[in-house]
Design a protein around this nucleic acid. Structure first.
Lengths: 225, 225
DNA sequence: GCCTGACTCCGTATTAATACCTAGTTAATT
DNA sequence: AATTAACTAGGTATTAATACGGAGTCAGGC
């Protein structure tokens, strides 16, 4: 991929015309480096249809959208074209939004207050197959402890939590995190405390922690209580 | 206090004119029920002076303010007029903001995205001597578990944490919450593991929890890691 | 029909945590 | 001088957690 003569196809899905024009303007200020072909969509449904019709290099996707929201539109696009690269945009840095979009398969998340340089940085990262996050987003996501759990890992873990852990294990984890002993949990769930012990072992192994403290931290950090 | 003929004196301290007008408009849409006298201030210093000059029923106080911030202004007003009822407003639901304002003596905390009904609910609650919190705020603060730890208790605990726990206990608590055993902690701090055990007992007693899980939850909820 | 994962349960053993008690030193306070 | 809180440490005992192994059932996918 040689940047200079590279034509980059962009789709902007956002219900605010002002935002679409803003992104377009910021992208086009870099026209010397790339040649952009930009399409727009003002609601989720329209975005999905555009994405099915054309192969875009990057799809900017707002979260709050009419008809289909950003999460639904992202899922729909990815189930039709799994290799689409979707960059979530939002004015809010609420963890829930971020997480929902990442779970839906977005490759990055940027805030609407970013400038032209950063928006190009995001586009270049996405094009070259990397993920991209606004600084504020990254800070929000990393904050685990001493860099042990990186953003990617935390996001990935939360996204795949229901794939990693069975529903029974989740149930046990919640009870552990709420100060119940194996025996109490066993009574509550009508199983032997040995069963609970096995779940506990599996939880520690799957989550890569050493003891109860680690399990509780995970439960709280991933907000599953 | 009979609502219908009650004159309610309001002070709005916020550096954004748009916010002040928004609150004013939302309040005045309830003029059939109350008669509002609204004053405005665009920075903390101005707010303090107004509050000293006049007795307001409710003072809306932003957090980020020029000259004196919301926390400082709140403290200043309360030291001059201890019975002032201050309602913190913020566009952010960061725990730190909330906690700082509550520590300064605010009677409530609302987000800027709330509507006219809720803003009236807040004002009525404050006037009648109650506290008021936006739903999202309440959720953030209460969320401990099954209502065992109420917001007031959580806020109070955080405020008085350094009074309740000694620095050594805090140190031990952090190490417990980061998956260290008593023996490891003892080695790290150059004391016997029995000493660590004693600290652990005292921590559980002081914090009213049953086991390691409870200690870890406290450490994370109060954000002391 | 076979295989796998989830869920269940047990045996055995060791280590860690919890409970309760006593008690010394030191520093600060009264 | 007496008291108190913090920090230290030990004794003793019980309970809980951790570790590792094996094993049966059951539902779903291949």
């Amino acid at each position: 991929m040689t940047p200079v003569d590279r034509r980059v196809k962009i789709l902007i899905v956002d219900d605010h015309n002002m935002v679409r024009q803003g992104i377009r303007y910021m992208l086009e200020s870099n026209e010397r480096k790339y040649k952009f072909q930009i399409e727009e969509a003002s609601d989720g449904q329209e975005g999905v249809e555009s994405a099915k019709r054309t192969d875009f290099d990057v799809i900017f996707m707002d979260y709050q959208l009419p008809i289909l929201n950003g999460m639904e539109a992202t899922s729909a696009i990815l189930s039709a074209k799994p290799y689409s690269r979707i960059l979530a945009i939002s004015s809010s840095d609420e963890f829930m939004y971020i997480d929902n979009m990442m779970r839906s398969g977005a490759k990055g998340f940027i805030l609407k207050n970013i400038g032209p340089e950063e928006i190009m940085g995001a586009v270049e990262a996405i094009i070259s197959g990397k993920n991209y996050y606004s600084n504020d987003i990254a800070v929000k996501l990393i904050s685990f402890e001493e860099g042990k759990v990186t953003m990617t890992r935390l996001v990935k873990l939360k996204r795949e939590l229901t794939e990693i852990l069975s529903s029974r294990e989740l149930e046990v984890l919640k009870l552990i995190a709420t100060e119940h002993t194996n025996e109490e949990i066993g009574n509550r769930l009508f199983v032997s405390k040995r069963t609970v012990d096995t779940h506990r072992q599996n939880l520690m192994r799957k989550l890569g922690v050493k003891n109860t403290a680690g399990l509780v931290k995970f439960a709280l950090d991933l907000d599953i209580l």
